[in-house]
Design a protein around this nucleic acid. Structure first.
Ligand SMILES: [Mn+2]
Ligand SMILES: [Mn+2]
Ligand SMILES: [Zn+2]
Ligand SMILES: [Zn+2]
Lengths: 120, 120
DNA sequence: TGAACAATGCAATTGCGTTGCATTGTTTTC
DNA sequence: GAAAACAATGCAACGCAATTGCATTGTTCA
């Protein structure tokens, strides 16, 4: 099961939801895939993306990630046309000026628009 | 009901969830408050915040907002200590370099950390 | 081989957003 | 002022995704 999920993720360019993985890897239980992805995330193989659509997406990490430390923090892009969510590993997270006394820990940045295939 | 919700929002400094409003304005139906907030949002009185916690938050807009046009786009901050979500109207949204062919439409940026009251 | 451990799958639960619909309240029209 | 038109409210129900419990199956190790 884990090999199936991993191989499927390797083939994908965009991030993908649990439901889509379930449909692709047919006779497989949703819960098992869910736990597989959770294990992958803990081991630093994939990262979970909250793109604001309400359903989580998953994508492979790069080589710098390991257990309990994700170092590939980057911007994500949601296309209003094809409804795909892309990792933008070349877009680093910006520095944000916080109010006095506030401490930075992490950040979630999702840009929405149209991807190169869907742009009018 | 709308006056109750509005007055409550005016008193708050942080954004607030539907559940919290319901608890504060006691004998009031959740659905009614939900629809009140939806009306407020359409009229440009409040904006909805997706801070990644899974539950939406609401906060008052500034004077520049009107029906169907929200002009007070800004960064939001989620405190890992008090679990409050704050608007940061002074932090403008940054410019992000997108890949060739990608078009920008909007953006959601949530910074997480500790607020001034919770900072260790 | 048998015990210990890990992975799987089914069922059920939770939490939140959302909608349908009947009821109540308010405004407009005659 | 009564009737009709419209808007707001409240209860029930639904939908969807994430999550957990628990029994079953498969694998590893003594
Ligand atoms: Mn990513
Ligand atoms: Mn805000
Ligand atoms: Zn697209
Ligand atoms: Zn705080």
């Amino acid at each position: 099961m884990r090999l199936l999920v991993l191989n499927f993720l390797l083939k994908r360019k965009a991030a993908i939801s649990l439901n889509d993985i379930e449909k692709a890897i047919q006779p497989a239980d949703r819960i098992t895939i869910y736990r597989t992805l959770k294990t992958f995330e803990e081991k630093g193989l994939v990262h979970l993306i909250d793109d604001g659509t309400g359903t989580h997406k998953y994508a492979l990490c790069d080589d710098t990630c390991g257990p309990e430390e994700h170092n590939d923090l980057h911007v994500h892009f949601y296309c209003n046309g094809c409804h795909e969510t892309y990792c933008l590993p070349n877009s680093k997270l910006p520095q944000i000026d916080l109010p006095e006394g506030f401490g930075y820990s992490e950040m979630n940045l999702v840009v929405k628009g149209y991807c190169d295939k869907c742009k009018p």
